[in-house]
Amino acid sequence: MTPSGAPAVAIANLQKRFGGGRTLFGFGPEMPSVHAVQDVDLTIPTGETLGIVGESGCGKSTLARMLVGLIAPSEGSIEIEGRDLGPAAGRDPAAFGRVIQYIFQDPISSLNPRKTIRQVIEVPLRRLHAMGPEARAARIAEIFDAVNLRHEFLERYPHEFSGGQAQRIGIARALAAAPRILVLDEPVSALDVSVQAQVLNLLVRLKAEFGLTYLFISHDLAVVEAVSDRVAVMYFGRIVELARAADIFARPRHHYTALLARSAPVVGRALTAPEAATAELPDPLAPPPGCAFAERCPAATDRCRKERPEFRDLGNAHFAACHHPA
């Protein structure tokens, strides 16, 4: 389906600033701005699952929302299957909708409480594909079978479903648009572990069945590792490390990735604070000039505090933005 081997997603120099501008119709003092996503370059080949990991406020959701066109980037380009969709971002999400869809974190609140499931799922079929009633019914039946949902659910309202069922409905709605790329924003973090695995396995199966490309965002390292081919770690608006899923937590090069891997609670590992007890994120309104992680980093030197490390190739398909990689 992709024209001449273009990657599913190619973004370059993507930036997003929130706030800023001036008050009083452009004549007042400049307002503070937050640089939520900075200098992100990413290429996702067709058929890959790219995991994105990071803590709250690192910019991973902002990146995802730019990718599906819900918000416009401040700078940079977004190419989906070789087509430049940057200009449509934030203005015409439907242009994205046919190729790339989004799965939300909170499955219940992503469904309109006053619509039946059928009404919810019909929308993309009507608006994006202009299907007639019979074609719609056939397509819905096909998708519902694919996500293991009973057909009588179609006439019910969202509040009647458990989180796991609602998330499957969310997946069904995304698939109804017949996209080739799915952006999954914490798709299982609102679910219980026993249900989480059901949904994750379903996602893996659907990927093979429909030949999808995934961008999988999560704060749970183990989940990301279990489903991804490659993983990118974000910190303070930037990608700080990118490597194969099998390598990145086993042999982290960036000290932040190492900290993340050490912090995940594991049965049988003694409880020790992995870093100084008071470490916090830098102030986003006054970002430090050098590496944003320097204040928390055990390997930080003066150079780290002054000079921002380049995101560079460390060999073996491993990239990191660090002056002193581990």
Binding site: L70, A94, F104, N112
Partner: peptide
């Protein structure tokens, strides 16, 4: 989120 979802549904 359901408003965002509706946007993406065209």
């Amino acid at each position: 989120e359901f408003v965002d979802a509706a946007r993406l549904a065209g």
